[in-house]
């Protein structure tokens, strides 16, 4: 297991696991509603033409997230 880092820094197609979600209030609620909670496995599968937001692949579906929102999430790389 590698060290935890901010989701914003994640590269495309890197397999990751969420470690913490520190967002509160509405943003925190929305992030959690979509299933972004500690332990979830995610992968950044693409970035918008202006590098922001990013497309994030979860096990069953894809969602979008702004870089400013990704700042509240830390991840660690997932080795196969």
């Amino acid at each position: 297991m590698g060290k935890a880092f901010c989701l914003r820094e994640a590269g495309v197609n890197q397999k990751l696991k969420i470690v913490t979600v520190s967002a509160q209030g509405e943003l925190g609620r929305r992030i959690r509603d979509m299933g972004l909670i500690p332990g979830t496995e995610v992968k950044v599968i693409g970035k918008a033409p202006l590098k922001d937001p990013v497309a994030l692949r979860l096990k069953d579906f894809t969602l979008t997230l702004r870089n400013s929102e990704a700042d509240h999430i830390t991840v660690e790389p997932l080795e196969d």
């Binding site: 509405e26 943003l27 509603d33 937001p53 969602l63 997230l65 929102e69």
Partner: peptide, 12 residues
Amino acid sequence: GESTPFVMELPP
């Protein structure tokens, strides 16, 4: 006010 979060589904 804050912009509404962009945590949005990209449906297939």
